[in-house]
């Protein structure tokens, strides 16, 4: 920063000016498509009836203020508090266990020497990303059902069968494993792209020092993609409240509500048949605040600790 300031003032301004010009289309875009519609968030504090005014915007003004009514309504429900905890638990499982998986996969894929084989593996691993949860849910049910192959195998070994979809302790793991299976391959793409950016000179230097491939992976590749990993982690924390609505809705059932019901599915159930824009907005706003706090603080943490961050 200091270095650039020491340069001639004219060059700096010129250089910056054209940079700001480049930003204009993007800024206009978020202004129009994101900031402008944000007035809509006030309906989280109103008893919004879309037909209350001459048009939906006018209806926002016409609707009555209710303050934090929707949050209070939710928090007094024990079922909601349980869903809140489940959301955090499932999300944290998916982050703590699920986040490193694509990194490890990317590092190992990178070690495959046969180029053709490597390409095929990459393509095959990301196939499940294109299946909807409806299809994936049915697949896991057929494998893990009481009459499925896994239970048949367990029973043939003399164990008792496991009701994967009806056991409240096992069910979160079913969610985790199916999510890993579906998305891990796809999530390697960013890391594989980052690995291609590692300078070959670093590898050559390591080779000269007599490093094995494993050592190169650990001492060269991993540090080189560290900033990408950090950035992905901060972004991932931003979606902590999204524990997987589509997935849970397809896979859960009333017997595993105690550990499988998340905020989104709970709000979906109580909102069935009711046209309540305000409730949805209130929950969305709550999720946004939680995510925002996490992203801001993790970014600050990374900047202080490692000197690198998103901003």
């Amino acid at each position: 920063m200091h270095l650039s300031k020491k340069r001639t003032g004219g060059l700096t301004t010129n250089r910056s000016l054209s940079m700001y010009l480049l930003l204009i289309p993007g800024l206009i875009f978020i202004l129009v498509f994101h900031y402008l519609p944000m007035y809509g968030a006030v309906i989280a504090f109103k008893d919004y009836n879309i037909f209350a005014g001459s048009d939906p915007i006018n209806a926002i003004f016409e609707s009555e203020w209710v303050g934090l009514k929707y949050w209070e309504q939710l928090w007094v429900q024990a079922e909601f508090r349980r869903a809140f905890c489940n959301t955090l638990v499932i999300s944290l499982m998916k982050i703590v266990i699920g986040f490193p998986v694509p990194i490890v996969l990317a590092l190992l894929i990178n070690e495959i020497r046969l180029t053709g084989y490597k390409r095929i593996i990459q393509t095959v691993l990301y196939l499940p990303h294109f299946m909807s949860w409806a299809v994936v849910g049915a697949l896991f049910l057929s494998i893990l059902g009481t009459t499925g192959p896994i239970n048949a195998w367990l029973q043939s070994l003399g164990f008792e069968g496991v009701k994967f979809f009806m056991n409240e302790r096992v069910f979160p793991w079913v969610l985790l494993v199916s999510a890993l299976w579906k998305e891990s391959g796809w999530n390697t793409i960013v890391y594989l792209a980052a690995i291609t950016g590692v300078s070959p000179e670093l590898y050559e230097a390591a080779t000269v020092d007599g490093a094995t491939r494993m050592q190169k992976m650990y001492y060269v590749t991993l540090p080189s993609i560290a900033s990408t990993i950090m950035m992905m982690l901060i972004l991932r924390l931003g979606s902590i409240m999204a524990a997987g609505f589509d997935q849970v809705l397809v896979m859960y059932n009333p017997t595993v509500y105690s550990t499988g019901d998340i905020i989104d599915t709970y709000v979906y159930r109580i909102g069935l048949g009711q046209l309540n824009f305000s409730m949805g907005t209130a929950v969305g706003l709550f999720n946004s605040i939680v995510s925002f706090v996490l992203v801001i603080s993790s970014n600050l943490f990374c900047r202080k600790m490692f000197g690198r961050s998103i901003w």
């Binding site: 009806m166 059932n253 009333p254 509500y257 069935l272």
Partner: peptide
Amino acid sequence: ASLSQKANDYFMQVIAGT
């Protein structure tokens, strides 16, 4: 809709013994 769902959920839990 929401009340039927609620009853359905409870029934299912009783049937399965949860």
